Each structure stands twice: as C-alpha cells, then as structure tokens.
Simulated scan of single mutants.
Amino acid sequence: MSRTQANLLLTLAAMIWGSAFVVQQIGTGNLGTISFTGARFLLGALVVLPFALRQFRRVEREERPFQRRDWFGLTVTGLVLCTAAVLQQHGILRTSVANAGFLTAVYVPLVPIIGRLFLRRRVHWSVWPASCGCLAGTYIMSGAQGLDFRLGDLWVLSSTLFWAVHVILVGIMAWRTRAPLVVATIQFLVCGLTGLVVGILVEQPTMTDFFGALYGICYVGVFSVGLAFTLQVVGQRFTPAADAAIILSSETVFAALAGFIFLDERLAAVRIAGAGLILCCILAVELLPMLGKSRPLS
C-alpha cells in the first residue's frame, strides 16, 4: 500500500469519527461511561475478529510468528485505548460537542512532541506548524468566540495524552507485527473486556441500561470502532504517527459537514475558514516533503 492510499484510509476514519461525536453524546441512555465504552469496543472486536483470525494464520505461516513481546505490546495498547476512550466519553457527556472536538485535537501536537522526546524520532519541519495550524483551525471551528469551559472539558483534555500515546503505539505495533487487523482486534478485546469488567464493578449497570443504549452501542461499535479504528491501524502501518495525527484531526471538519448535511446546521464564514485551515495543514504535511529533499529537524 502506498502512503497516499494509507492517508486516504486515515481520512475515511476521521470522517466516520466526526459523525460519531453526536451519537456518543446522546446515544448512551442511562448506561455509565465505562460500561458504554466496554460494550462498544467489544462489539467492534467481534466485527473484525473473523478477518483478524485469517490474517493471523497467514502471518504466522508466511512471515513471522507472534512473540511474547507482541502480545504484551498489544495489551498495553488496548489499556491505553480504554483509558483514553473512557476519559473522553466521560467528558463528552459533561460538555458541548464543540468543546469536546476542540480539546480532543490537543493530542495532534502532542504526538510529534512525545515522539521526539521519548523515542528520538525526527520529523519533517512541516509537521510542527501543521500541528499548531490544526489546533488553531479546530478552535476556530468550535466557535472562535471563547470556549465555555466546563468540568467535562478537564476530562476530555486529560484523554489527549493517552490518545497521543495510542497513536504512537498503534504505529509501532502495526509495523512490528505486520498484521494490522490483529492489532485492531486485540486492542479492541482488551479495551472492551476491561471496560465491561470495571464498568460492572463500579457502575453496576442493569440489562435495561444496556438495551437503552443499544442503538448507540451498535452505531459506534460497528462504525467508529470496528471500521474506523481498524482503518487507522491499517493506515498507520504506512504513515508516520505525527502525519497520521494531523490527518485524523480532520474529524472536526467532517463533524461540521455531517451537521450541515443531516441537521441543516449552517456554518458561518469564520468556521468555514477554520475548516480550510485544517485542510491546508493536512495538504502541507503531505506535499511539502515531496518538494525537495528537505533535511528533517533534529
């Protein structure tokens, strides 16, 4: 797969996530945050499981056997994913969709920073201004008139560190195992089982609570988890983590487009400008490295 094709998969993942923000806010019913997260990721794991088993057998037979370090890395990735998703979901229920969309995008500049500080990764110079530009564009799309910060915003903001680490881990594990569908399924299983066990112990949900959130679980579990997160894992095998984070930030743009198409929400000119800034940053990080053999900043 070429890097351009991988980036298109990441863009499709962002499109699906953008449409799921509203569902995550209104589709949980009375089900608790942790239980809802566990249920949707476990459903996502079941969606991808048949394809992952076939890929696992092929990789084991033709390329390389899975090692203990692989399973450990996949387990850690799933636990980080569970933490990020629970913190974000808890915050989404206690703030506006606009605030949640903007604050989640804070992970975009964190990815190259973490990669540089802890993994000694060098990135093309265009990643730094593009990351800041995506953050600014998301802020503009969130209103550009000052965000009404609430308690839920702190929960969403705390999730960004774990989202940034998750993006980096996904890239590492997809490259190491050469089995992106297996990576997706195992992290979903770990996240789903952990969420359900902890949710049942802490939140003590009833079957009525699960049935009340069934539509939300099905939509987010099948599309946002089973499809979009799998597209992320596949795409990140061929795209650097910092670039992937910038492309995935376009979920804010697609959330606004979904609101326009399905809810007839009109975008003011300033918010259209914010969307344009995000798209320009995505194009910049994709095209500028091709203009010449620019030396990455060390």
Score class of each variant (00 low, 15 high):
residue 152 G to H: 10
residue 153 D to P: 04
residue 154 L to V: 15
residue 154 L to E: 06
residue 155 W to N: 03
residue 155 W to M: 09
residue 156 V to T: 14
residue 157 L to I: 12
residue 158 S to I: 13
residue 158 S to W: 09
residue 159 S to H: 10
residue 160 T to N: 13
residue 160 T to Y: 15
residue 161 L to D: 12
residue 162 F to T: 08
residue 163 W to T: 09
residue 164 A to Y: 02
residue 165 V to D: 07
residue 165 V to H: 06
residue 166 H to D: 12
residue 166 H to F: 10
residue 167 V to D: 01
residue 167 V to N: 00
residue 167 V to C: 02
residue 168 I to A: 04
residue 168 I to C: 03
residue 169 L to D: 04
residue 170 V to D: 00
residue 170 V to Y: 00
residue 171 G to Y: 02
residue 172 I to C: 06
residue 172 I to E: 01
residue 172 I to Q: 07
residue 173 M to A: 04
residue 174 A to H: 00
residue 174 A to S: 09
residue 174 A to D: 00
residue 174 A to R: 00
residue 175 W to D: 15
residue 175 W to K: 11
residue 175 W to H: 12
residue 176 R to E: 11
residue 176 R to K: 12
residue 177 T to H: 01
residue 178 R to C: 06
residue 178 R to H: 09
residue 178 R to V: 02
residue 180 P to G: 10
residue 180 P to F: 02
residue 180 P to S: 06
residue 180 P to H: 05
residue 180 P to R: 04
residue 180 P to E: 12
residue 181 L to A: 03
residue 182 V to R: 07
residue 182 V to I: 11
residue 184 A to I: 00
residue 184 A to K: 01
residue 185 T to W: 07
residue 187 Q to I: 03
residue 187 Q to D: 13
residue 187 Q to A: 13
residue 188 F to I: 11
residue 188 F to E: 08
residue 189 L to H: 11
residue 189 L to C: 12
residue 189 L to S: 10
residue 190 V to F: 10
residue 190 V to P: 06
residue 191 C to N: 07
residue 191 C to K: 02
residue 191 C to Q: 10
residue 193 L to A: 12
residue 194 T to L: 14
residue 197 V to C: 15
residue 197 V to F: 15
residue 197 V to A: 15
residue 198 V to Y: 04
residue 198 V to E: 05
residue 198 V to D: 03
residue 199 G to M: 07
residue 199 G to P: 00
residue 199 G to E: 05
residue 199 G to S: 06
residue 200 I to A: 11
residue 200 I to N: 08
residue 201 L to V: 11
residue 201 L to E: 07
residue 202 V to L: 14
residue 203 E to F: 12
residue 203 E to P: 07
residue 203 E to L: 05
residue 203 E to T: 03
residue 204 Q to E: 14
residue 205 P to N: 11
residue 205 P to F: 09
residue 207 M to A: 13
residue 207 M to I: 14
residue 209 D to Q: 14
residue 210 F to Q: 13
residue 210 F to Y: 15
residue 211 F to L: 14
residue 211 F to E: 11
residue 212 G to N: 08
residue 213 A to H: 02
residue 213 A to L: 09
residue 215 Y to F: 13
residue 215 Y to N: 15
residue 215 Y to K: 14
residue 216 G to R: 08
residue 217 I to K: 04
residue 217 I to A: 11
residue 217 I to V: 15
residue 218 C to K: 03
residue 218 C to V: 13
residue 218 C to R: 05
residue 219 Y to R: 03
residue 219 Y to Q: 09
residue 220 V to L: 09
residue 221 G to A: 10
residue 223 F to C: 05
residue 225 V to D: 01
residue 226 G to Q: 12
residue 227 L to K: 04
residue 227 L to P: 04
residue 228 A to K: 00
residue 230 T to K: 01
residue 231 L to C: 00
residue 232 Q to G: 04
residue 232 Q to L: 06
residue 232 Q to K: 11
residue 233 V to K: 01
residue 233 V to I: 09
residue 233 V to L: 06
residue 234 V to G: 00
residue 234 V to N: 01
residue 234 V to F: 02
residue 235 G to I: 08
residue 235 G to F: 05
residue 236 Q to P: 07
residue 236 Q to V: 09
residue 236 Q to F: 05
